[in-house]
Amino acid sequence: MSDFSKGAAWIRGQIVPISEATISVTDWAVTHSDVTYDVVPVWNGAFFRRDAYLARFEASMSALRMDVGMDRDAIVRALDGMVARSGLRRAYVAMVAARGTPLIPGSRDPRDCANHFYAWCVPYIHVVRPEQAEAGVAVHLSKTLQRIPPASVDPRVKNYHWGDFTAGLFEAKDARFETVLLPDGAGNVTEGPGFNVFALKDGRVATPREGALHGITRDTVIRMARDMGYEVEERALPVTELLDADEVFLSTSGGGVVPVVRIDDRHFSNGAAGPVALALRSRYFELLDDPAYRSDIDYPDTD
């Protein structure tokens, strides 16, 4: 019997254990990182804000001129069936559109590639360990690296261009920080590997508009903060302003809201998780179980 305990994949119309999922080594997704993807969390047996993630995935495919030959209903069926077969009740679920391999051997024309869809799921991933997130995380702000400029690679189209992030993670880990934030060339902060950033100062919350993915969790946090009475601004966020904030926190589909207690040698909230960040974190996990945001998965009856 196949072992789905470590996750599952939907590929070429089949659901297989994740260890058995493969794509061609000549696929442009591999050779050129020519791919877009999205990640939707599954929490307690249901997708959270699935339609919002699907809409962004569709927009990304359109921006990259990809057509995988599947409409939204077909993608939903693939994701639903895959997660149901895995049996995972809390999962990290990725949907991927790959450029594919040229139908004309040797062609260098992206229009000649056979675009295709695949998906995979694994047990829920926390970008920051839950116990670390509750206490607050220490972040490194790189002074030697910059985020890939939006004019080169649009960060609003979710992608695998992680050269800058990976270099930043090495820099952060070597300095014993949990993760990294990257600035742009104009002195503004952008984002980190898998998360957006927010700064709270004098009752106002700011988050970068340019140079960063417009995350679904970012959008959820913006809504929650406004519901709590805070003014939220989506705009350029100078590094100097970030470091002068009363509180800093991150948002990610892999763990919700994560308080930041330190950026390099700058401490926030006296080195403890800030009260606003903790309130937003608690509210996020409440929303994960709110029927208004959930799309239930039809798991097989195992009784």
Results as ranks from 00 to 15, higher is better:
1 M>G: 00
3 D>A: 11
9 A>L: 01
10 W>G: 01
13 G>C: 03
15 I>K: 02
16 V>T: 09
17 P>T: 13
21 A>L: 02
23 I>D: 07
28 W>A: 10
31 T>Q: 13
32 H>T: 01
35 V>C: 11
37 Y>C: 03
40 V>C: 13
41 P>D: 05
47 F>P: 00
52 A>L: 15
54 L>Q: 03
54 L>F: 06
56 R>A: 11
59 A>I: 00
60 S>E: 07
64 L>S: 09
65 R>P: 00
65 R>E: 13
65 R>M: 10
69 G>S: 10
77 R>L: 10
85 R>Y: 03
87 G>S: 14
88 L>R: 15
92 Y>G: 07
93 V>M: 10
93 V>S: 04
96 V>G: 05
98 A>E: 04
101 T>Q: 09
103 L>M: 11
108 R>H: 07
110 P>A: 08
111 R>L: 07
114 A>K: 14
117 F>Q: 01
118 Y>K: 11
120 W>R: 02
122 V>E: 14
122 V>Y: 05
122 V>P: 06
123 P>H: 04
127 V>S: 13
128 V>G: 00
139 V>K: 03
140 H>C: 06
146 Q>L: 13
150 P>T: 12
150 P>I: 01
151 A>P: 00
152 S>K: 00
154 D>W: 06
155 P>E: 07
156 R>P: 08
158 K>I: 12
161 H>D: 07
162 W>P: 00
163 G>I: 08
165 F>R: 06
167 A>E: 14
171 E>S: 15
171 E>Y: 14
175 A>R: 14
175 A>T: 03
176 R>K: 13
190 T>F: 11
191 E>K: 00
196 N>H: 04
197 V>M: 12
199 A>Y: 11
202 D>T: 10
203 G>R: 12
203 G>Y: 11
204 R>C: 07
207 T>H: 06
207 T>M: 10
210 E>L: 06
212 A>V: 13
212 A>L: 10
214 H>R: 11
215 G>E: 12
216 I>M: 12
220 T>S: 13
221 V>Y: 09
223 R>S: 11
225 A>H: 03
230 Y>H: 15
232 V>M: 10
234 E>P: 03
236 A>Q: 11
236 A>E: 09
241 E>L: 01
243 L>D: 08
246 D>G: 14
253 S>A: 15
254 G>P: 08
254 G>E: 09
255 G>W: 04
255 G>V: 04
257 V>G: 05
258 V>P: 02
260 V>S: 11
263 I>T: 09
264 D>A: 04
265 D>T: 15
266 R>S: 05
266 R>V: 15
266 R>P: 04
269 S>L: 00
272 A>L: 01
274 G>D: 04
280 L>T: 05
281 R>E: 06
283 R>E: 07
286 E>F: 06
288 L>H: 12
288 L>A: 11
289 D>M: 00
294 R>N: 10
295 S>E: 09
296 D>R: 13
299 Y>W: 12
